[in-house]
Simulated assay, not measured.
Amino acid sequence: MGRRRRKLLFGVLLLPAVAAGALWWLTKPNPWDAAHWQGLGEPDVANGEQVFWAGGCVSCHAAPRAPEDQRLVLAGGRTLKSPFGTFYPPNISPDETAGIGNWTLAEFGNAMTRGVGKDGEHLYPSFPYGSYSRMTAKDVNDLWGFMQTLPKSANVAPPHDLPFPYNIRLALGGWKLLFLTDEPRADVNTADAKLARGQYLVEGPGHCGECHTPRNALGGFEEGRWLAGAPNPEGEGRIPDITPGSKSIGNWSASEIASYLETGFTPDFDTVGGSMVDVQKNMAKLPPADREAIAAYLKALPAS
């Protein structure tokens, strides 16, 4: 074989390896540098509790059908059905074996905001880190401090039940490359402190878009349809459009939206239903100013 032909063959063999290496580099788990989680000081547990309710941790991580006095036992195990398979939220109680009691702040924070697990693996976006990515390091630190005060549980949640190819975690790196961002979802006047706070709560810890925004075939949000309503990922029906002008809350005033989040009653004296029941219970525990900020942000959005 001539020298020129050997070079050509070598190049043909090398190109796929280079392409594979570049693809791996672009899609590998990408946690924060260690410095991101340093120097935050002692957690503000009171603020951590507010972040906890805003984030809706109870809704997915409390045991299925847990009574009211057990809602803070984050034993995991609830069934979340989706077009991609069935997900089972894990135990995130402070239990050192079954839960996350032996995690560090950095491990917790990277799971919350980068979708990277304790062992460096990609996490599935059924855990809404695509929204939590907007959370500040301080809020994550405060949340972590509050969660250490919660009861332990020895329950071990079932593993996810996913068909091929969705059971291949490496593919999640490509999903993140396409869809994971901490950029704002909507253009609102963030010079207004109330709107800025509302945007942070709705787009970040509140993760409202995870249910209220339609998704494409790969599970990413459809462009230009923020909070415009979507099929119910857990069954029949739809999650409503909550932009101005919608049939659900489009004609409500900001004060009526804030009141609904506090009391569960609509302006027509109907009551909250479905999966929104848990969300409303969580929102009722926030300070009035936060519910007002959420309402102001929703009213500031363009109609879908």
Rank of each mutant, 00 (worst) to 15 (best):
N91A: 05
S93I: 08
D95P: 03
D95R: 00
A98Q: 07
G99F: 11
I100G: 01
N102A: 11
L105E: 03
A106H: 09
A106I: 03
A106N: 05
E107P: 08
E107Q: 15
F108N: 13
G109C: 15
N110S: 15
N110M: 08
R114T: 07
G115P: 06
G115N: 01
G115R: 00
G117V: 03
K118Y: 12
D119S: 12
D119W: 01
P125T: 00
S126G: 11
Y129C: 13
Y129M: 05
G130Q: 07
S131V: 08
S133P: 05
R134G: 11
M135C: 11
N141R: 03
N141G: 15
L143Y: 01
W144H: 13
W144C: 14
F146I: 14
Q148S: 10
T149G: 07
L150D: 02
P151V: 09
S153V: 11
A154L: 08
N155T: 04
V156T: 13
V156F: 15
P159Q: 09
P159Y: 10
P159M: 06
P159I: 04
H160T: 00
P163G: 03
N167A: 12
I168E: 03
I168Y: 04
L170D: 10
L172S: 06
L172T: 02
G174S: 07
G174H: 02
G174F: 09
W175T: 00
R185I: 00
N189L: 00
N189Y: 08
A191W: 02
A191E: 09
K194Q: 10
K194R: 11
L195M: 12
A196C: 09
R197W: 08
R197H: 14
G198S: 10
Q199K: 04
Y200G: 09
L201N: 14
E203A: 12
E203H: 09
G204R: 02
G204I: 03
G206C: 07
H207W: 10
H207K: 12
C208Y: 08
C208M: 15
C208K: 12
G209C: 15
C211E: 13
T213Q: 14
